[in-house]
Amino acid sequence: MEKAVEVKLNAIQMVCFSSYFLPGYVAHKDASVPQIWPRKGDPPTQAPSKRKKLVFFAGEMNSRVRKYLLQEWRNVTEIFVHQGRLKTPYSEALLGSKYCIHAKGFEVNTARIGDALYYGCVPVILADYYDLPYADILNWESFSLVVSTVDIPLLKKIVEEISFDQYLRLQSNVLKVQKHFQWHHFPVDFDAFYMAMYELWLRRSYVRLPLGAL
C-alpha cells in the first residue's frame, strides 16, 4: 500500500496488523480487525472459581516483549509464562486461567486475544502502539487489561490489585463480547463480519473519489 499513495490515502484497509510503525497502515483511517481462528459451536464455559491459574502465557520467544516477559516471570507461580508449546492442551490452560496475556510476537497482532475471549479468559494486552480491534465500538477497559510493556515488572502487582468483584465484572463482560469475535460461514447478527462492516460504515467519510469518477 505504501507504493500506491492514491489508494493508501483514499481507501480504507481492514487489517489485523494495525501497528503505528507499519508504513502501509494509517491510524484512525484504516480499520483494525481481530485475528481469529474459525471455530464451530458455542464457546466452552468454566466458572471463575475453577480458574486456578492467575495469569497465563505460552508461546515462542520471538520478540523483545516476550523475552522480557519470560525474564521477569519465568519462576513465579502466580504468573505462568511458558516458552514454546505446552505438553497439555492449550485450551485447558486458557479455560483454567483468570487472565491470559497477549504479547507482541513477530507482529503486533496475534490470535491470543481471540483465544482468550473464546475461552472466557480476561485478556491482558502487552502491545504498545497497537490499534485494538473495534476500538471505536467496544470499550476495551470493560473486559480487558491494557498494560504498557514498560510495566511488565509490575504485572503481578497490577493484577493482584484487582478485587475479585472487579474480576467478575471483567469476566462477565468477556462473555458478552465473545459473539463479536466469532466468524460464521453465514454471518450471524453482531458477529465479526457485522462488526467489520460497522467499522467500515463509521469510516465512510474517509473515502474520496477522484473528480473524474463523479
Rank of each mutant, 00 (worst) to 15 (best):
P38S: 09
V33K: 03
K53C: 06
Y118S: 02
K52D: 08
E199L: 08
A103C: 01
L22R: 13
A116V: 07
E6D: 13
I137M: 09
Y167N: 03
D42F: 14
L202G: 01
H180S: 11
N109H: 14
K40D: 08
C16Q: 11
C121W: 04
N62S: 03
A116G: 09
H28S: 10
E6Y: 13
E6A: 15
Q178S: 10
K53S: 08
Y90H: 13
W73C: 01
Q166S: 11
Q83F: 07
L117Y: 06
V124N: 04
P89K: 09
K87N: 11
Y167S: 00
S91P: 03
T110E: 02
Y68V: 05
P48V: 05
M195N: 03
A103W: 00
R169K: 11
A103F: 02
Q71K: 15
P123C: 01
P187S: 05
L94E: 01
K67T: 10
W73L: 02
A11S: 06
Y25V: 01
L54P: 10
R204W: 02
K53I: 05
Y198F: 15
A135S: 15
L211Q: 15
R169I: 07
R64K: 14
Y134V: 05
P187I: 06
H180K: 10
P43E: 08
S97H: 00
I137E: 09
R208P: 00
V15I: 11
E72S: 09
V159C: 01
A111L: 07
M61Y: 01
S163W: 08
N139F: 12
P187E: 05
F190R: 15
K8W: 07
V159T: 01
Y134T: 03
V55C: 06
F57G: 00
R39S: 03
Y20M: 08
H82R: 12
A196T: 04
A111S: 13
V26M: 11
Q182K: 14
M61Q: 05
G59A: 11
P38L: 04
R208V: 09
A103G: 05
E160D: 11
Y130W: 07
D189L: 14
K98Y: 06
D128R: 07
Y119P: 05
G120I: 01
S49F: 05
K87G: 10
A116R: 08
V81Q: 03
L168E: 15
F80D: 13
T88W: 14
E141K: 15
G105I: 07
D30L: 00
G24A: 14
L145I: 04
R169Y: 03
W37P: 02
L70Q: 11
K50N: 13
S144P: 02
I137K: 09
W201H: 13
R208M: 11
T77H: 13
A11P: 00
G41E: 01
D128T: 03
L202W: 02
F143E: 00
L211W: 14
L202R: 06
A31V: 10
V33A: 04
I101D: 03
V55A: 04
V5N: 13
L170R: 05
T77G: 06
W201S: 15
M197L: 15
I101Q: 03
